Amino acid sequence: MSETRTFKVWRGDNGDGELVDYKVEVNEGEVVLDILHRLQATEAPDMAVRWNCKAGKCGSCSVEINGQPKLACMCRMSTFEDGEEITVTPLRTFPVIRDLVCDVSYNYEKARQIPSFTPDPDLEPGEMRMQQADVERPQEFRKCIECFLCNNVCHVIRDHEENKEHFSGPRFLMRATELEMHPEDTADRRMIAQDEFGLGYCNITKCCTEVCPENIKITDNALIPLKERVADRRYDPLVWLGSKIGLRKEGADTPIVPNTKPGPANG
């Protein structure tokens, strides 16, 4: 069974744009991305829409639908009221390239700044051992499809342009947490998360968790534990004392602090 619905789609580029009304056929079981494709095929062949897998796993089709950041391929038309107008706009936080396509290169620049996994160089292949609990704890974070909806709604990025250079956003602070929780990673990312990735800017509003299509508990399971670890590193008196009594490389100006990562019980 089909019906005609009104779509308001933002059309324009980084200079200017407007919402354009379209009357379009909608069929049972379709998602918003289906409708955008129908518009491209019938009324707006020059409409720019980014997409890839159409299965909620690539994160490419991130847009704002009726003001809510969502994946167009996972937003079913059956979730709207009968006769409700549907407004589709690009992500507000990132510069528009054209129509519904944004320049999300900011996120890839931040990704490159995260120090990569750093195993013990003395371990031979096959010698690394992990407890199942250590595997399961950061496994949730690996579900991330990099749709960047969490970074899009983060007010530190969206509302404070001056902070963007110094803030990695919830997606990449979560990545830092994932590596920090890995028992076979020897790097200490606690202070770099605070001083270079802007962890202190996060005030745990949980808006990033609310929009995550993979239902990752970004705030509770990543950002808060990372803040706790930073507090332990910065304010633990034993760590401070150790840095003062000779835990330095010869000739170095900064203390070398052992990477004593807390286990699952202390997270």
Score class of each variant (00 low, 15 high):
4 T>R: 04
8 K>R: 11
10 W>Y: 13
10 W>S: 04
13 D>Q: 07
13 D>R: 08
14 N>C: 06
14 N>Y: 01
18 E>F: 14
18 E>L: 07
20 V>L: 11
22 Y>M: 10
25 E>N: 08
31 V>S: 11
37 H>C: 12
41 A>L: 10
42 T>E: 09
47 M>F: 02
51 W>M: 04
53 C>M: 02
58 C>Q: 05
58 C>H: 04
61 C>G: 09
64 E>A: 06
65 I>T: 10
65 I>N: 08
69 P>T: 13
72 A>T: 05
73 C>F: 04
74 M>I: 03
75 C>G: 02
76 R>Y: 12
79 T>Y: 09
84 E>I: 13
88 V>H: 06
93 T>W: 06
95 P>C: 06
98 R>S: 07
101 V>G: 13
108 Y>G: 02
114 I>M: 05
114 I>W: 02
116 S>T: 11
117 F>P: 02
123 L>G: 06
124 E>A: 12
129 R>N: 14
129 R>H: 14
129 R>W: 15
131 Q>Y: 09
133 A>Q: 08
135 V>I: 11
144 C>D: 08
149 L>E: 02
154 C>R: 00
157 I>G: 00
158 R>K: 14
160 H>F: 13
164 K>Q: 05
164 K>M: 06
165 E>R: 02
165 E>W: 02
173 L>K: 02
179 L>D: 06
180 E>P: 00
181 M>G: 10
190 R>C: 12
192 I>T: 08
192 I>S: 11
197 F>A: 00
197 F>Q: 01
199 L>G: 02
206 K>Q: 13
214 E>I: 14
218 I>D: 01
220 D>C: 09
221 N>A: 06
221 N>C: 12
222 A>V: 15
222 A>D: 14
226 L>A: 00
228 E>L: 14
228 E>W: 13
230 V>S: 08
231 A>P: 03
234 R>W: 07
236 D>P: 03
240 W>L: 15
243 S>F: 08
245 I>M: 10
255 P>E: 04
255 P>L: 09
258 P>Y: 04
258 P>W: 01
261 K>N: 03
262 P>V: 11
263 G>F: 08
